[in-house]
Design a protein around this nucleic acid. Structure first.
Lengths: 188, 188
DNA sequence: TACTTTGTTAAGATTTTATTTAACGTTTTG
DNA sequence: CAAAACGTTAAATAAAATCTTAACAAAGTA
């Protein structure tokens, strides 16, 4: 057994990891998370729990970057704070269960979408109602207000549906419906 | 009926629309689509089909911005090209059915995630297999390669699941499972 | 075929976002 | 209690994305 070959092999393992780390980073980029936060997540995914200094060493970036990166990932529970015995530094661990990651991520985003838009719709409809109730407006203006009101009203079922989706995913109920493992083909 | 009040009412309608347009733009921002593309979408959502020049006038931006914005929205079928009789200019229309929008958007993104990562995993595993098959490596290195290999292998069920989710959403099958309208409570 | 009109690409300018260095406050430790 | 370690915030810098003006190419019209 040659030490040279062994070292080469270790490099190759790191290379294989990097392939996946990059892919995870690009995945997060798809959903609007910065590539650098994605790289951080990918690194933690393989490394297990890490301190900010360990992240800094691994990624060759500054500590404040690690701090803000971790913070951003925490927003949707992609990383959690952990306790490492006899360690003064804070340690963080990446969520390694992608199903859990998916649940955290999309329930969070979808709920945000629902709340944001339902609130905007509510405000807009209030405003439109006020217009329609006023007397000194033309029929044309009334109709336009009414039309917009109805368009908004008709969009509500979507948000209610999305809320149900978010709830099902957050609770894990979705996995009863779309099972983790595909159903086997029926035997004759 | 005073013309002044009517004009005021019209402004108020536009204001109500803007509230929702901003909210749609912020929604798209959540998912990593730029706010300006989101604003464009929101505008088209209310306006119906538009030419690039109409968009430019409405948003007070340059035509190339409109062109690239439309292009970006087309990537996930948020807008489609339409034909307006006797119109030489191209016209575009926003997808107004949010269920359809959701289907287009997430099936597109999820399929991209699946393909991206499964391919990276495949490459990484090939590389790791080659290492494990080589003779001149330490037991420790072998074990590390094997460990990473297994971690990747264990992540595959997630991607297969996500592919099924994407397929269900693209096909509309999801709406059989999570209905558009919530089931009524049973009568006693 | 020459002249418009339309949409896109290219280059430059501007703005926004990300990253780093430096400073600060807090906690721990000798 | 002083000194050091740690994490975060602030300010400055660097990098990236966006937008505009200008040039170009393609299609349509006279």
């Amino acid at each position: 057994m040659s030490d040279y070959k062994d070292e080469q092999a270790r490099e190759s393992i790191d290379n294989a990891k990097d392939l996946v780390i990059d892919s995870l980073a690009e995945t997060m980029d798809i959903y609007g998370v910065t590539r650098s936060a994605g790289t951080l997540y990918g690194t933690m995914y393989f490394e297990g729990d890490m301190t900010l200094d360990e992240m800094r060493d691994k990624l060759g970036m500054s500590k404040p970057s690690m701090s803000t990166g971790v913070k951003r990932l925490q927003e949707f529970n992609a990383v959690k704070k952990t306790f490492r015995r006899g360690q003064r530094k804070h340690t963080y661990v990446a969520e390694r269960d992608f199903f859990q990651f998916f649940s955290n991520f999309f329930s969070h985003k979808w709920e945000r979408e629902v709340n944001l838009n339902l609130q905007a719709i509510r405000s807009a409809q209030d405003q439109l109602s006020a217009i329609m109730e006023s007397n000194d407006i033309s029929a044309e203006t009334y109709n336009e207000a009414n039309e917009v009101y109805e368009v908004l009203e008709n969009s509500k079922p979507y948000y209610y549906w999305l809320q149900r989706m978010a709830t099902m995913i957050r609770s894990g109920e979705i996995f009863d419906i779309v099972p983790l493992h595909p159903p086997e083909n029926e035997q004759e």
